[in-house]
């Protein structure tokens, strides 16, 4: 399985990379939505999963999700928002834009694994 982690915080990218790495994912990183689109453009095999922060410079996560939904080449990619944005209205906006799941920061590694299990990306009952 392949994943892309999109977050402007290097510390958060490291945490997410560590969790995904332990679950057996190959991980690439991008520091904003535009950088992620550029990286994805050049990838032969598109990732199965994108973890997407919301507030980032250049292109934010909501814009990225919208762009990814509109791109036929990225249609199979599961989109998970990972963000501190936690008002109900914001979550509904992200889902309407095409996000499949939503993880609110702060999150425990167990919570991230459980969300990926809900999406069928790791076996149910998996743990680190």
């Amino acid at each position: 399985m392949h994943a892309i982690v999109i977050d402007d915080s290097r510390a958060m990218r490291l945490i997410l990379r560590r969790i995904l790495g332990q679950l057996g994912f190959d991980v690439v990183e991008a520091e904003d939505g535009q950088a992620a689109l550029n990286v994805l453009e050049g990838m032969e095999q598109k990732p199965d999963l994108a973890l997407v922060d919301w507030n980032m410079p250049n292109m934010n996560g909501l814009e990225f999700v919208t762009a990814a939904r509109d791109n036929p080449q990225l249609r199979e990619m599961t989109l998970v928002m990972v963000t501190t944005e936690s008002e109900q209205s914001q979550i509904v906006r992200a889902l309407a834009a095409g996000a499949h799941e939503y993880v609110i920061k702060p999150f425990t590694s167990g919570a991230m694994v459980e969300k990926l299990a809900l999406l069928g990306l790791v076996p149910s009952g998996a743990s680190l």
Binding site: P106, F107, E114
Partner: peptide, 20 residues
């Protein structure tokens, strides 16, 4: 808490059954 609703609750079920 936020941490608790992160744990295994599909987001659609969160927005349908809970209020902030």
């Amino acid at each position: 808490s936020q941490v608790e609703v992160n744990r295994g609750l599909p987001v659609q079920k969160l927005v349908h059954n809970f209020e902030r």
